[in-house]
Design a binder for these strands. Structure first.
Length: 111
DNA sequence: TTGCTGACGAACA
DNA sequence: ATGTTCGCCAGCA
């Protein structure tokens, strides 16, 4: 089943602009549950069956590391997708995180 | 049913 | 600076 928390997570992730990334914790915080960041990751795990178009590769952990790449069809897919959007990945972590980090808070207002 | 695990993150020691 | 613990809670054995 899918609860509102999941739906909100999906909404936000789908709103992430191309060329930007965000973090699980940031999303959780914007949803009013700063300590439920694990659930955001869990939601991502479920996202592919809910809506395959969800850009889960744009969601990283707070350090900008590709912690979830093992959940993609291939381990290189997540990195490839990010690089295709202009990001630079090094040692499983994104570079210039400060410049590409997107704040989900601005999406909350839209929703 | 209970207990463990996990795409996280913050607080402690 | 590094390692451990805890909160969160949905799945799974």
């Amino acid at each position: 089943m899918v609860n509102d928390f999941y739906l909100d997570v999906f909404k936000i992730v789908k709103l992430i602009p191309k060329g930007k990334v965000t973090s699980y914790g940031l999303i959780a915080k914007c949803l009013g549950s700063p300590q439920s960041s694990r659930m955001v990751g869990y939601a991502m795990n479920y996202s592919h069956q809910f809506d395959p178009s969800i850009p889960a590769h744009r969601v990283l952990n707070r350090n900008g590391c590709l912690t979830g790449k093992h959940h993609f069809p291939t381990e290189t897919m997540m990195q490839d997708l990010l690089e295709a959007e202009g990001h630079i990945i090094e040692n499983n972590c994104i570079k210039n995180l400060d410049k590409v980090l997107w704040n989900p808070a601005e999406a909350i207002e839209i929703i």
